[in-house]
Write a protein that binds this DNA or RNA. Structure first.
Ligand SMILES: [Zn+2]
Ligand SMILES: [Zn+2]
Ligand SMILES: [Zn+2]
Ligand SMILES: [Zn+2]
Lengths: 131, 131
DNA sequence: ATCGCACACGTTATAGCATAACGCAATTGA
DNA sequence: TCAATTGCGTTATGCTATAACGTGTGCGAT
């Protein structure tokens, strides 16, 4: 396992996200990559699916948009529950992780006999600069 | 403040959600209400906006769908951070609240000098019956 | 009363997000 | 060599959400 060599399309999408200030929708990515030969949404969505699978990219559900993961991916760690703050002002997204929240959620869910597959935590608001 | 008398459209949408087993998309609600005279998405979205504002309904971001709030609304309490488990098998959604998570998130966010406006916590997986 | 305003409503059109279904090409491994 | 897998390209379609316009109704201020 781990992260295989990216294909051309996957690299292009990854590059677009990595060099972006903030999150991008699939269609915004498409527009950025028209010059590199992208023509259709599926080219983007298929690349995103893989990048999500590899853990290189996260999807922001409340925005229908995508961001590059900001964790170090050197060591192959599964980075558990991911949470985000999302500034409504400047669009800045900050990824963070917290063991305490992860464990508390895990306990609450276990009490329901629920089996977690994916956890979404997104906090919308305003960052320090935009307050 | 509080919950004003609902308009006809708001009542119809609220009723549809309240009597539904699980979450419904706006377009599913529209279809359910065609017999009561609904014709266009905006009739649903406008009602939903108000119901969300009154706290009678929640939006599930990871599903682009809506559920009736299951908290008692007798006493006018603002019910803080709301979290959901969402079963991929049967569609069952369970709303829950936890003070510990709320406080921990609050602390983490404060450390970023971030000002929270809305918090989304959604856990996708399988419920006890669908495991 | 009547003016002005806020608000709900109805309608049409459009924008934005995501996937189905087809076929082709390259790779891999039995 | 054959079959299976994976990535790719294209067209068409479906689902989600809002813009923009106009109507009507209730209600307080003048
Ligand atoms: Zn990450
Ligand atoms: Zn900001
Ligand atoms: Zn609730
Ligand atoms: Zn279930």
């Amino acid at each position: 396992m781990g992260t295989p060599q990216l294909t051309k399309n996957q690299s292009l999408v990854m590059g677009a996200l990595a060099h972006s200030d903030g999150p991008m929708s699939a269609y915004t990515i498409l527009d950025k990559l028209r010059d590199q030969g992208f023509r259709a949404p599926l080219q983007v969505y298929r690349a995103l699916d893989k990048l999500l699978e590899y853990g290189l990219v996260h999807r922001l559900e409340s925005l229908n948009a995508f961001v590059a993961c900001t964790c170090p991916h050197e060591h192959e760690h599964d980075h558990g529950v991911t949470a985000f703050t999302i500034c409504e002002g400047c669009g800045q997204v900050t990824e963070f992780h917290d063991e305490a929240i992860e464990q508390r959620l895990s306990a609450l869910v276990r009490a329901q006999s629920f089996k977690t597959e994916k956890t979404t935590i997104e906090i919308r608001g305003h960052c320090k600069s935009c307050a």
